[in-house]
């Protein structure tokens, strides 16, 4: 299971890449593997406001469906336009080509609540 060092993580299995006040969000390798073959992705519109802890999108596999939660509050500045037509990218490349949205963060301090790679690794071990 891949857990890149440079990312931060939520308990709902989203990853976050921080670049200044823009964060990129996707779901983790663990999440894609638990869901299985992903067949559908629903993303918010560019410009939409998202609230920390609230669902902003949906990923579906053949037999499961999962909300994707915003790790922080802010405004959607870009979405991965490729995903709706090629949702399987989340399975093959969860941390790169499978990114979902970019959010302009309101308050960078919110990011302090997220886990780093080690903490997430530990979190996964305890979840089992």
């Amino acid at each position: 299971m891949e857990i890149p060092e440079e990312l931060k993580f939520t308990e709902d299995h989203e990853w976050v890449l921080v670049e200044d006040d823009i964060v990129t969000v996707g779901i983790t390798d663990f999440a894609q593997e638990s869901l299985g073959d992903i067949v559908f992705v629903e993303l918010p519109n560019v410009g939409a406001k998202v609230d920390a802890g609230k669902a902003f999108g949906v990923v579906e596999s053949v037999k499961a469906v999962s909300d994707v939660y915003a790790p922080i509050s802010g405004q959607v500045v870009e979405i991965n336009e490729e995903l709706p037509d090629a949702p399987e990218v989340i399975n093959t490349s969860p941390y790169e080509d499978g990114w979902m949205v970019k959010i302009k963060v309101e308050d960078l301090a919110d990011l302090d609540d997220l886990m780093d790679a080690n903490a997430y690794q530990e979190f996964l071990e305890n979840e089992d």
Binding site: D37, V39, F40, S61, V62, E88
Partner: peptide, 10 residues
Amino acid sequence: RRMDEALAAR
């Protein structure tokens, strides 16, 4: 044989 359900849904 077993069907490709992911293809059907995508």
